[in-house]
Design a binder for these strands. Structure first.
Lengths: 98, 98
DNA sequence: CACACATATAAATACACATTCATATTATGT
DNA sequence: ACATAATATGAATGTGTATTTATATGTGTG
């Protein structure tokens, strides 16, 4: 049930991009809008999903709300996923020749 | 682009179940139907997705077609994902009290 | 208090995709 | 060659969900 919502959350590439950015340090929504090029409301929606899953945390700082990852494990896992995806891709392409 | 299709493939819990079963050793479609309780056509559809992504391989053995994982990294990654999901869940639940 | 800035939310739309149902393909044994 | 077993495919359906548009909420400042 939980692994499921976790994966549903990181399957979206826009949410993964947000995760990578906040993984490099606290960011406010406006910064994320600029970094990603997405609409503000879309960023907010995704941040909501990420927070509901426990993938990011937020704190208020004046008018702004700062977001960061709840755990560094998450960013590590994302790169591990990319590694495995790449190696699987190579295997699959090697097989095409057969 | 590729990380994306990889994640889209493992986000489905039925495909993850299939992956876990074939990760324990070669299985034919009929076995997977019995193990998972899914309809035969559904298993076939999912196996197709998994094969298109390079996550499983198949070979013919008589009437049957045997499937297995293309790499043991995949099963390892699935358990790693479960670990991180669990730890994130704990963090999130700890935060609820605040 | 009123205004501007920062963020969140709600409803509407569009689209992807899992599942089902029906049917096709391929192989084996007699 | 035929019947049956094993698997695959195609079309139809339904459901979930990302994105957009519009609006609301909250916060500091003059």
């Amino acid at each position: 049930m939980n692994e499921d919502s976790f994966l549903k959350c990181i399957v979206d590439s826009n949410r993964r991009r947000i995760l990578m950015f906040v993984g490099q340090g606290e960011k406010c929504v406006t910064e994320l809008v600029e970094l990603t090029g997405m609409e503000q409301s879309l960023v907010s929606h995704h941040l909501r999903s990420l927070r509901d899953c426990g993938l990011v945390r937020s704190r208020r700082h004046g008018k702004k709300i700062l977001y960061n990852t709840s755990s560094s494990d998450i960013v590590d896992l994302l790169s591990r996923i990319r590694e495995v995806a790449d190696s699987v891709k190579e295997l699959a392409e090697g097989r095409e020749c057969v």
